[in-house]
C-alpha cells in the first residue's frame, strides 16, 4: 500500500486556485519532499493530506484512509508538525509532551525525544516564553510522540540556526532508517536535495516536476565548474593541461584563478589528476555542480526566491 495517494487534488479559495489538479503517490518508507516558493501550494497540499482542510475536488488517501472522514483512526498513526500553530501560552514544555503522550494509543517515550531535540533544559519553560527555534523543536518533538508510521513536516527547519538545521537533517535520516515515511515541505532547495528520495517541485499550484533529485538535476543543461588557483608562473601550463581532460569543454584564467567548464561527475578528478601529473601545485579547489535551484530556474524561468 502507498503511504499517501493523491489524485486530481484541487483546492480553491474563493476565486484563488491554491492547488490545481495534482496527482502523486508517496511510497512507504521514503523521504518525499515538496519544494517550491512561498505561496506555491505546498502547505495547502500537506494540510489536505493531514485532514486539516477539505479539498475542493479530488481524492486523498493516507495509509488507505480518507483523512477527513477517518480522521481519528488516521491521526493515531501519523505525526504532524504544522507551519502555523501554537500551544497554550502558559503550558510547560514537559506538560505539552505528557499531554500529547496521552493523546495517542502507542506513544514513544517523550524523554529521549526531548533530549534529542535539545529541550531537556527547557522542560519547565512556558510555551509562550520559548524562542522561535525552541518552539520549532518542540513542534517537531510533538510530531514524533505518536511513534508514527508517517511524519509530516511543514517547513521543517524554518526558524532554526544552521547547527539545529543539520541536527534535524540527521533526525530525518534516522527516521528513514527506522522505516518511517517522511513527507516534508521546504523552500530550501539544498535541504530537499540533501534529504529527499524523491522531490515534487510545485509552482502556482501545479507539480512541474517529480523525480529523484539526481534525475531532476541531470535534466538541466548546466555545466559543472571547477575553480582553483595555481602559482602565476604555472598558469599557462595549467590552463593548457586542464583544457585537454576528457570532460572539459573550456578553461579560462583570471589572475591566478582557473575556471574549468565541463560536464559530469568525473571532471573534478580529471582536473586534479592532470595537475598532479604535471607537478603543478594548486589551492582553494571548489566544485560547482548544478543543483535543484537550476532545475527550478529551468522549469519556471525564475529563481525560487524571486
Amino acid at each position: 500500500m502507498k503511504a499517501v495517494e493523491v489524485r486530481n487534488l484541487r483546492k480553491v479559495y474563493g476565486t484563488k486556485v491554491a492547488v490545481n489538479d495534482i496527482s502523486f503517490d508517496v511510497e512507504a518508507g521514503e523521504i518525499f519532499g515538496m519544494v517550491g516558493p512561498n505561496g506555491a501550494g505546498k502547505t495547502t497540499t500537506i494540510e489536505c493530506i493531514e485532514g486539516l482542510r477539505r479539498q475542493t475536488s479530488g481524492t486523498v488517501r493516507v495509509l488507505g484512509m480518507d483523512p477527513v472522514y477517518e480522521r481519528n483512526a488516521l491521526q493515531q498513526r501519523v505525526g504532524v508538525q504544522l507551519q502555523q500553530s501554537s500551544l497554550q501560552k502558559r503550558l510547560k514544555v514537559k506538560e505539552a509532551l505528557q499531554l500529547f503522550s496521552d493523546l495517542y494509543p502507542n506513544p514513544a517515550p517523550w524523554q529521549p525525544i526531548a533530549e534529542r531535540l535539545g529541550l531537556s533544559a527547557s522542560l519547565n519553560t512556558h510555551f509562550g516564553a520559548l524562542s522561535g527555534g525552541q518552539r520549532q523543536r518542540l513542534n517537531i518533538a510533538l510530531a514524533l510522540i505518536p511513534n508514527p508510521e508517517i511524519v509530516f513536516f511543514d517547513e521543517l527547519t524554518t526558524g532554526l540556526d544552521p547547527q539545529a538545521r543539520r541536527a534535524m537533517w540527521d533526525l530525518v535520516q534516522d527516521l528513514h532508517r527506522e522505516g518511517k515515511t517522511v513527507f516534508l515541505t521546504t523552500h530550501l532547495m539544498d535541504e530537499a536535495e540533501r534529504l529527499c528520495d524523491r522531490v515534487a517541485i510545485i509552482d502556482h499550484g501545479d507539480i512541474v516536476a517529480l523525480d529523484t533529485p539526481q534525475n531532476l538535476i541531470s535534466t538541466v543543461d548546466v555545466e559543472t565548474r571547477v575553480l582553483l588557483t595555481v602559482p602565476e608562473e604555472a598558469l599557462a601550463e595549467a590552463v593548457a593541461r586542464v583544457r585537454t581532460v576528457p570532460h572539459a569543454i573550456r578553461a579560462e584564467s583570471a589572475g591566478s584563478e582557473i575556471v574549468v567548464h565541463g560536464s559530469g561527475d568525473a571532471l573534478p578528478v580529471e582536473v586534479v589528476n592532470a595537475l598532479w601529473e604535471a607537478g603543478i601545485q594548486f589551492a582553494s579547489l571548489k566544485v560547482e555542480r548544478p543543483t535543484l535551484e537550476d532545475v527550478f530556474l529551468k522549469l519556471t524561468g525564475r529563481t525560487i526566491r524571486s
Binding site: L52, V80, L82, S85, S86, L87, K89, L103, P105
Partner: peptide, 17 residues
C-alpha cells in the same frame, strides 16, 4: 484566542475529537 493563535488547529491534528 486559541483560534487566533492556532491552538485549536494544533489539537485538530491529533486523534482528539
Amino acid at each position: 484566542g486559541y483560534r487566533e493563535q492556532g491552538v485549536l488547529r494544533r489539537y485538530r491534528a491529533t486523534p482528539l475529537n
